[in-house]
Amino acid sequence: MKIHPAYEMLRPDKNFPNVWCPGCGHGIVQGAIIRAVQKLGLDRDEMAMVSGIGCSSRMPVYCDFNSLHTAHGRAIAFATGVKLHNPKLHVIVITGDGDALAIGGNHFIHAARRNVEMTVVLMNNMIYGMTGGQYSPTTPIGKRASTAPYGTAERDFDPCSLAKAAGAVFAARGTVYNAAELEKLITQALAKKGFALVEAVSPCPTLYGRLNREGNAVKMMQWQKENTVNVKAAEKLPPEKVRGKIVTGVFHDAETPGYTEIYDRVIAKARGA
């Protein structure tokens, strides 16, 4: 009889269950990340899991990695320092839609521009969960939030397009419903040399679901199951068939030297001079 394979990657002396609400998708993303790390056979001592602030960012403490829980929006800046100082470390940034794209937006686009080698797992629940349900840069226009009682008046970002435009070498989106695909995308991202984004659409039943009357965890996951289109299929569909749906899969996959690799050339030049 076999015990859950992910247990060996959990922090041995940390109390469980995790802090997330019942049915929150974040725990599913954690499972996918752990399985991706195991599939690639990465050494826990070389894993650096860096997070910002928010529901997403409570993940690192539960993982038996080098974990660094930083300040709101600043995970990617800290991660840049970790990676640059010790390029041997596999850096995974755990962030949320508010953490990465609102307060952290400047660091997000610049780390992508520099192509600093890190995998950014952006858990998108389209709301600020930790602070009680305010709208975020990915809350769809017209949706309700504690700070948008009449529906938001703002259009939302597409994090994958943003990352690609800024220079990331990899940008993909998965849902927690299709956890197997999400794991595959994270595995691909971890194997990339450069800034690799995986956006994981992760429902928030407690706040987003309740404020927008989209039901509980099961209903929100059911909605994901019925409203997801793979990017390849979406290309063949007329726009109105794709509008309002979650498009998943790999949007961008390129090869560009990573920042630390290029900086090693700077060092070589400086030493040669």
Binding site: H4, P17, N18, G27, I28, G31, A32
Partner: peptide, 17 residues
């Protein structure tokens, strides 16, 4: 293993292959 993959709390898993 869909139950195992989708459990947000790693509380359910296939224990017999």
């Amino acid at each position: 293993r869909q139950c195992e993959l989708r459990c947000p709390d790693l509380a359910i898993f296939v224990c017999e292959e």
